[in-house]
């Protein structure tokens, strides 16, 4: 199965710029479906980005983060070919992880 996570990590000398896109409905729990029933909340709570075994970003998300979330950040260090591990956990306990290579 294709991963829910897509990552583009680019090392440019001193820093590595990371852009990630995660496929997730991010249902807020405030929206009704076509039959008028509330769609229960289903959203990612945490996303961890780890480089060389070290946490480089921890994202805590509420239901207000858009569907198929996008995030962009940068950290010092990181070289071409280094692994970057991305792991998310949602409010239903579902999780996915991906090891991307810094390019």
């Amino acid at each position: 199965m294709a991963s829910s996570i897509r990552v583009r990590a680019q090392a440019n000398g001193k820093t590595t710029e990371v852009q990630a896109l995660i496929q997730h409905p991010m249902d807020s729990g405030f929206v009704k479906d076509s039959s008028g029933k509330l769609i229960p909340p289903h959203h990612i709570e945490t996303v961890r980005f780890e480089h060389a075994g070290k946490l480089v970003l921890m994202a805590n998300w509420g239901p207000a983060v858009s569907k198929d979330p996008y995030i962009k950040f940068a950290f010092e260090g990181g070289a071409k070919g280094d692994p970057l591990v991305v792991t998310w956990v949602d409010n239903l306990g579902k999780t996915d992880t991906l090891t991307a290579k810094i390019g």
Binding site: T15, M26, S28, V56, L57, A59, P63, A64, V65, S66, P69, Y70, I71, K72, F73, A74, F75, E76, G77
Partner: peptide, 11 residues
Amino acid sequence: GTLPSIGCRLK
């Protein structure tokens, strides 16, 4: 070591 700059998309 993480730069103080974050971009994301919100509802």
